[in-house]
Write a protein that binds this DNA or RNA. Structure first.
Length: 635
RNA sequence: GCUGGUGUGGCUCAGGGGUAGAGCAGCGCACUCGUAAUGCGCAGGCCGUCGGUUCGAAUCCGACCACCAGCUCCA
């Protein structure tokens, strides 16, 4: 008998050769139905895998990342099968599972049309109905090359050739279709109940624009129709919340042909922005930062010295002034460094925390521009901290606390990533190791979970990234903390130590919002334009019912304004229903309906954008309520 | 930058070789109205830009620009 150890530690015995599927079914009928793949001693396998030796076995359903991946990946195979049936001349590239679905790349003479996509999807549904088993078999390198070579699958041949020497080469076959694949796969196509092809796009073979452009079909799949529908609804919801659409509707900002990637902020967008900046300034002042502002254009020598000329030139804009070369700053650090260097520093002064809301310009490829999320000029809520090496840990922890506090104010959860040395970088391995270790230490001291991204750091140092999660579960990189031993060296920064000698300070670059512009985009989508009262461009809209209520409505407006509320009065000769509809569409938090009753009693009738009619309030009570909501930054 | 798509009044969109239309928004008038659209009227566009084909181009062709979906890249 074979001893099988399950996840809960229990041990069961089975005759040798029993499949994982049989074990799952024996544990519970439900697990038998829902299990998609298994892990034997930590190695992912198909459910058909026979157990010949004692092993630890674990099962995965669609609710586990492993199960979900296999599910989507299996669907990608069905897609490939369907495409080969409809377009036998198509050559197969790769087809992995991705977050939210899967894709498969094909080399076809012309792009797929939406009609063809529908046809392919219909073919996929047929294959699902046939409930074909996924069969795994192993082949030698020679056999694999012969098989796919004969089929004219040149991309597969390339993949096979790139496999490591000792790799086990496996294929999966369902019906008349066979694909090179490591697996694992779900037992049969019948499991793939709810499949939807969501789009087509060009994509380069192996992601390099030097290679041929293939046609990528995106899709997603779920075990239940209802799950698919919910997923599609979420996508619709994301579209409805698109900050570009809301930005125009709420009149926050615009991007015009005259400045692609250079956003214009309208009055209402500026209110939002100024609130964010004021909050930022207050918090930074309280935490010992001093604010500075450095020029946007600085001369070439500075950028050569900082290393940007060599490492960042492709992203920079240049100009000439009086026969000399200048660059528009893509980062604020050199400016901050010049401020630090403008006078001598004692070790007693450190840490020096210089904060700057700095407007930077970066040349981004035209195709990547996207509303406020990807632009060519943006404002970083930057700060550079100059400190003693002994202060590193504490300073980093201070920044982590700050970021944690900020995101909490907006109701965001976040994830942390640590990025290490990239290829095109400056400095010695030793310096990088020290810096990376310092970041890691601070994260551990703060007890944070984090993921490591090898080779993803800045060219001057490793970094901690904060990815915040919005209400649709999407993540956005905002805050970063970058430790830098190199700039202080390059700019010969010093402080005078206890011993009267000059010493080298260490530097931190950090942002919390990241880019104010992007942050506003994220907030817009997160709140679907219904900003918390403290951020709302218009906090209260006063709606007189008829002309005779105008005087009192104006008085209410004045009193609220005097109380520091951003209030607007709708004086137009329109019905109150109409005014409400418009104020709702503008997502204004509070609407005050003013009619005979209110004018007579000196009250206001309060309607909340989501809470509806809240009844009658005295002006003072209402004012106090809104003021408290603003003060507490209530969500 | 690359692949595919789109470009008509502020917005959403119809039209399509004979010189431009609707709804909403705007403006005017009437209605004086109680929690998501009152009615009537008026005005507004060299149909993204440049070039070509044609007796004639918003319409067909080409180039460019911008935008959209992706690729790649990043705050």
């Amino acid at each position: 008998m074979v001893k099988v150890t399950l996840k809960d530690g229990s041990v069961r015995e089975y005759p040798p050769g029993t499949t994982c599927a049989a074990v799952a079914g024996e544990i519970s009928p439900r697990l038998g139905r829902e299990a998609l793949v298994a892990a034997v001693d930590g190695r992912l396998v198909d459910l058909g895998y026979p157990l010949e030796h004692d092993a630890a076995v674990q099962f995965f359903t669609f609710d586990d990342p492993e199960g979900r991946q296999a599910f989507r990946h299996s669907t990608a195979h069905v897609l490939a099968q369907a495409v080969k049936k409809v377009f036998p001349e198509a050559r197969l590239a790769i087809g992995p599972a991705i977050a939210g679905g899967f894709y498969y790349d094909f080399d076809v003479p012309r792009p797929f049309t939406p009609e063809q996509l529908a046809k392919i999807q219909a073919e996929m549904e047929k294959i699902v109905k046939e409930d074909l088993p996924f069969n795994r078999f192993e082949v030698t390198r020679r056999e694999a090359l012969d098989r796919f070579g004969a089929a004219g699958e040149t991309y597969k041949e390339e993949l096979i050739n790139d496999l490591p020497e000792d790799a086990v080469i496996s294929c999966y076959q369902q019906g008349d279709f066979t694909d090179l694949c490591a697996g694992p796969h779900v037992p049969s196509t019948g499991r793939l109940k709810a499949v939807k092809l969501t789009g087509v796009a060009g994509a380069y073979w192996r992601g390099s624009e030097k290679n041929k452009m293939l046609q990528r079909i995106y899709g997603t799949a779920f075990p239940k129709k209802s799950q698919l529908e919910e997923h599609l609804f979420r996508i619709e919801e994301a579209k409805r919340r698109d900050h570009r659409k809301l930005g125009a509707e709420l009149d926050l900002f615009s991007i015009q042909e005259e400045g692609p990637g250079f956003p214009f902020f309208h009055p209402k967008g500026m209110v939002l922005r100024n609130e964010l900046e004021q909050f930022w300034r207050d918090e930074h002042r309280m935490r010992g930062y001093q604010e500075i502002r450095t020029p946007i254009i600085l001369n070439r020598a500075l950028w050569e010295r900082s290393g940007h000329w060599e490492h960042y030139r492709e992203n920079m804009y240049f100009t000439r002034i009086d026969e000399a070369d200048y660059a528009v700053k893509p980062m604020n650090c050199p400016g901050g460094i010049l401020v630090y260097r403008s006078h001598l520093h004692s070790y007693r002064d450190l840490p020096v925390r210089l904060a700057e809301l700095g407007l930077v310009h970066r040349h981004e490829l035209s195709g990547v521009l996207h509303g406020l999320m990807r632009v060519r000029c943006f404002t970083q809520d930057d700060a550079h901290i100059f400190m003693l090496p002994a202060q590193i840990r504490e300073e980093i922890i201070g920044v982590i606390d700050l970021v944690d506090y900020f995101y909490g104010v907006f109701g965001f959860n976040y994830k942390v990533e640590l990025s290490t040395r990239p290829e095109n970088s400056m400095g010695s391995d030793e310096i990088w190791d020290t810096a990376t270790a310092a970041l890691e230490e601070a994260l551990q001291a703060r007890g944070m979970d984090y993921k490591v991204n090898e080779g993803d750091g800045a060219f001057y140092g490793p970094k901690i990234d904060f990815h915040l999660e919005d209400c649709l579960g999407r993540t956005w990189q905002c805050g970063t903390i970058q430790l830098d031993f190199l700039m202080p060296e390059k700019f010969d920064l010093t402080y005078v130590g206890e011993d009267g000698q000059k010493h080298r300070p260490v530097m931190i670059h950090r942002v919390v919002f990241g880019s104010i512009e992007r942050f506003i985009g994220i907030l817009t989508e997160h709140f679907a334009g219904a900003f918390p009262v403290w951020l709302a461009p218009v906090q209260v809209k006063v709606l007189p019912i008829a002309g005779r209520h105008l005087d009192y409505a104006r008085e209410v407006g004045r009193r609220l304004e005097a109380g520091g509320i951003r209030v607007e009065l709708d004086e137009r000769n329109e019905k109150v229903n109409y005014k409400i509809r418009e104020a709702q569409a503008q997502k204004i938090p509070y609407m005050l309906v003013i009619g005979d009753r209110e004018a007579a009693s000196g009250a206001v009738s309060v309607r909340h954008r989501s809470g509806g009619d809240l009844g009658s309030f005295s002006v003072d009570d209402f004012l106090a309520r809104v003021q408290e909501e603003i003060r507490s930054k209530a969500l």
